[in-house]
């Protein structure tokens, strides 16, 4: 465990060093994130121009959810996306051999070796928006609510990681999976709004089939409408199960890789 933390710290350090090489990139990125967030808030404003609530959520509640969305989006772009493209490269160019020869957990390595450090701004800005929305609502959450928020938020991160990791692992068989990441992102975009906005089949699908609802709506609910212990439990178990599943799939993929490639 200590070695894992040390590795993660080292990966983060190496990526920081790598990116300092391109300073301008950072400023450009900060501007992009700021603009995107402003645009999202503006969009929310439009939705609330004539209505007091959308799908039962007030303006500041939706803002809070937008904050959660932005933070998770930041996590995807900071950690998941850069590693996905590397894994595809590793497999196509055969440099995965170097990863497999290292005395470290190979799944840990391919999942977290490359991070885009500046995207941490997305996470900070997103959480900032959550705090801002809370302040505007004037109702400070109880400590139970805060704890459930962090549990659900972590579960959401695990879920996103697991879904993403499984898509990545598919590249062992399909080699090129870049398009799958676009598919994921367009699904994920539906998480900008509470699930209750969607109707009928779509809502069911987003709740259970592709659990976008769990990813943003549930953590946001923890701070606004409140969640039940039952929901907490389901989210936690589901998250752990998904992560365990990635582990199995990764092993399977490695076995087929090591017995097939040349």
């Amino acid at each position: 465990m200590r070695q894992t933390l040390r590795l993660l710290r080292e990966f983060l350090r190496a990526c920081f060093v790598e990116e300092v090489e391109y300073r301008l990139n950072f400023i450009g990125h900060l501007l992009t994130t700021g603009l995107q967030l402003a645009l999202a808030v503006f969009m929310a404003n439009i939705f609330f121009f004539r209505a007091d609530s959308v799908g039962g959520w007030s303006f500041y509640e939706v803002l809070l959810l937008l904050g959660v969305f932005n933070a998770i989006h930041g996590f995807i772009e900071m950690v998941l996306q850069p590693n996905m493209s590397r894994l595809v490269q590793h497999i196509r160019k055969g440099t995965l051999d170097y990863v497999l020869l290292k005395p470290v957990d190979s799944q840990l390595f391919v999942s977290f070796r490359h991070m885009v450090f500046w995207k941490i701004a997305d996470i900070v800005l997103g959480l900032g928006l959550v705090v801002f929305a809370l302040v505007q609502m004037g109702a400070w959450p109880t400590w139970q609510a805060i704890v459930s928020f962090f549990v659900l938020f972590s579960a959401a991160l695990c879920l996103v990681y697991a879904i993403w990791m499984m898509l990545m692992t598919l590249s062992f068989w399909a080699v090129k999976v870049d398009n799958l990441s676009y598919l994921f992102m367009s699904f994920f975009d539906t998480a900008r709004f509470p699930v209750s906005v969607y109707k009928g089949f779509l809502r069911l699908a987003l709740m259970y089939l592709f659990p976008v609802g769990l990813i943003t709506t549930l953590p946001a609910s923890a701070l606004t409408k409140g969640v039940s212990v039952w929901q907490l439990l389901v989210a936690g178990v589901l998250a752990l199960a998904f992560v365990a599943l990635t582990r199995l799939l990764w092993r399977l993929a490695l076995r087929s890789y090591t017995s097939a490639s040349s």
Partner: peptide, 11 residues
Amino acid sequence: ETFLVNKVIYE
């Protein structure tokens, strides 16, 4: 930089 990463990997 690669050397430093390997330093941590190989403990």
